[in-house]
Design a protein around this nucleic acid. Sequence first.
DNA 1: ATGGTAGAAACTCTA
Length: 255
Amino acid sequence: MRLATWNVNSLKVRLPQVMDWLQAHQPDVLCLQETKLEDVNFPERDIRAAGYHAQFSGQKAYNGVAILSKTPPDNPLIAVPGLSDPQKRVLAANVNGVRVVCLYVPNGQSVDSEKYRYKLDWLAAVMAWLKDELTANPRLAVVGDFNIAPDERDVYDAKAWEGQVLFSAPERKAFQDLIAVGLQDSFRLFDQPAQAFTWWDYRMNAFKRKMGLRIDHILVSDSLAEVCRSCTIDIEPRKAERPSDHAPVMVDLEI
DNA sequence: ATGGTAGAAACTCTA
């Protein structure tokens, strides 16, 4: 089973690239973030034509998540128990016996902003819910744009980023708390090249200058970690014309 | 110290 995640920063703009990527990599599941589409505008017909079922929870202009899967999903969940949030950032579904949770974690803007507080509170509520999800589903994958670089290796210039949003100590603590629930960062289960990132700012030629962060993750429960054979970042789509600022991440699970 | 880019929407916000 191949499971992937990609923040597409507008599915309307990126649909052709998503179609190409599905065709090329044939994931069994692809989780999307920042679709920026209301559900009535979701390109379900195109996705179906490509051989995928689609679940989606979106809104106009901001946020929006989706789970595409070759086999029909079941037990969908859109609202996190105990978290009342008008922002569409969470979607969960069972696919092939795996509970897949697609997250678009709030960006946080800056550490002194209200949005940063919202990010930390949101993470605490999601973590509490994921404990229950893990109890109910030993085969759990939590994937998406976490907007957190877990450690120094995940930032092109850790000194410059220390204390900044996406790499501040409270955010990294929140990430570790999530891991402590019973999840593993699939990327670090394997030897990886240095300077492996999933996001590069559109500005200042950040991609060409390799000024990136690894903020998109695939976390797996222990039972999935046992059958996880690889985790890779595909930077090819970031080289395309009109790219998303994020690259897709994928794992192969021997299931 | 500030601005740089992109997307969506509506002359600004979010990332």
